Structures are given as C-alpha cells and as structure tokens.
Amino acid sequence: MSNLSNFMHHHFDKPADELGDIEKRVLAKAHERKVISTDVNAAFSAEASFGERVADGIARVGGSWSFIIAFLAFLAVWTIINTILLATRAFDPYPFVFLNLILSMLAAIQAPIIMMSQNRQAERDRFEAAKDYEVNLKAELEVLSLHQKIDMHVLTELTALREDVARLSAALSARS
C-alpha cells in the first residue's frame, strides 16, 4: 500500500477506492501539504463562454437602479414627445403602439438572458459550496493530523516517564 493510500485509510477508515473524487483530491493536497485554492471567481470565470459573460453583463446592467431610472426617463421622454411636442405629427400617437412593441421585444429578449445569468449564478453558488466543502474537509484533516501528532508526542513522553519511574524504582529497590 502506498504512503498516500495509508494516509487515506488512516483518516477515513476505508479504502481509497471507496472515497469520492473530492475526498481523494483533498487528501492528496493535505498529504502534499498544499493549499486548496479558494479563488472561486477566477476559477469560475475562466470557464465562462462569451455568451455567458454577455448574459452576466446584461443582467448586471438590466438589474440596476441606473437602468431603471434611465428607462423611466426614456419612457417619459417618449410619451412627452409623442403627446405634447408632436401633437399634430407624432410618430407614435397615443396609445403608443410602437412603444408597446419595443417594450414587448425588450422583455422577450431580456427575460431569458437574465434567466441564463441566474442559472449561472446558481451554478456558481454550487461551485463555491463545493470549494468550501473541500477547504473545510482539509481543515478537519489538518486538525485530526495535529491531534494525532500531539497524541503520539504525549504517548512518547509517557513511555519515557514509565521507563524513568521503572529505573528509579529498580535503583531504590537495589539500595534497600
């Protein structure tokens, strides 16, 4: 059995082939004394396609107060121009059919893009939870390893003390 297999068996009390991929990866990192990367943003963003980055950008802009205020201003300008300024020659007179068409098209396009971004955010949250699990598992393994080292040190000291007591008892018995 290899050193890593012994390490796995010692910490989980089961053979390496019964462990999941995450546990194997974390145990290998712990055995090699390497740090688990916790930069979720960089790791997750590196895998994003162009469309996913665009969807995230649109959702970021479309879900902001600046977009809402700018869009309200656009709607106000549109209605003012077509109601007051161009009363005789309005390009979209009341009930603003062309504006309704534009709003419907915007909603039809924006909604699925925002849903894609929300799905991606949910995926990112799952990815982050998996990374948190790895870090927590490694921390637990390190604590267990420290406990084992302390226990071994205490046992070594107790054994040395027993030997000293036995030697002293033998020396005292020999003097009597």
Rank of each mutant, 00 (worst) to 15 (best):
D125R: 09
P93Y: 03
L158N: 08
E123A: 14
M152G: 05
F67T: 07
K149P: 01
I150E: 10
A42S: 13
F50K: 03
L103A: 07
A111M: 09
F44T: 00
F91Y: 01
V135M: 08
A76H: 06
L75H: 07
K149Y: 05
G62F: 04
A87G: 12
P112C: 06
L101G: 13
A30D: 08
L75D: 06
S45W: 02
I68Y: 14
A87Y: 09
R33P: 02
L85P: 05
L72F: 06
A111I: 10
R120I: 06
A111D: 10
F91T: 00
A76D: 09
A70I: 02
A55V: 01
S37Y: 09
I113Q: 00
A122R: 14
A87N: 09
Y133E: 13
G63M: 09
F127L: 05
S49C: 05
G63Y: 08
A59E: 00
V77Q: 10
A48K: 13
T38C: 09
F96E: 00
L86T: 05
H31Q: 11
N119L: 15
I150N: 10
D151R: 02
A48W: 13
W65M: 14
K131C: 03
F127W: 04
S45N: 05
V135D: 08
N136I: 06
G51S: 13
R120T: 06
R53Y: 04
S145E: 12
I58A: 03
K138N: 14
S64G: 10
R60V: 07
H147A: 15
A130K: 09
V143A: 13
H31K: 08
L72G: 07
N82G: 01
S37K: 13
L141N: 01
E128G: 02
A48Y: 14
K149S: 07
A70V: 03
I36M: 04
L155D: 15
V54Q: 10
N82D: 01
Q110W: 06
E47K: 13
I58Y: 02
A76L: 13
L103V: 05
W65T: 11
F44E: 01
F127H: 05
W78C: 00
L85T: 09
I36T: 08
R126P: 04
S66M: 10
F50Y: 08
V61R: 11
A55E: 00
V40Q: 02
D125S: 07
K138T: 12
L137V: 07
A73E: 08
F98A: 14
P112A: 08
F67D: 03
E157C: 14
N136Q: 15
A107G: 08
A139H: 07
R124C: 06
A55Q: 00
S49Q: 04
N82S: 03
L141K: 02
A122S: 15
E32V: 08
N41S: 15
W65C: 11
I150V: 12
F67R: 03
F91I: 00
E128L: 01
F74Q: 03
A107D: 05
A111S: 15
M116K: 11
D125I: 04
V143R: 11
V154P: 04
A30E: 06
E123G: 13
F44Y: 04
R120M: 05
M115K: 07
L101I: 06
L101V: 07
S66W: 12
E123I: 05
W65G: 14
A87S: 12
F91S: 01
S64P: 12
L137H: 02
S66I: 09
V97S: 10
F74T: 01
G62H: 06
A30H: 06
F98S: 13
I109S: 08
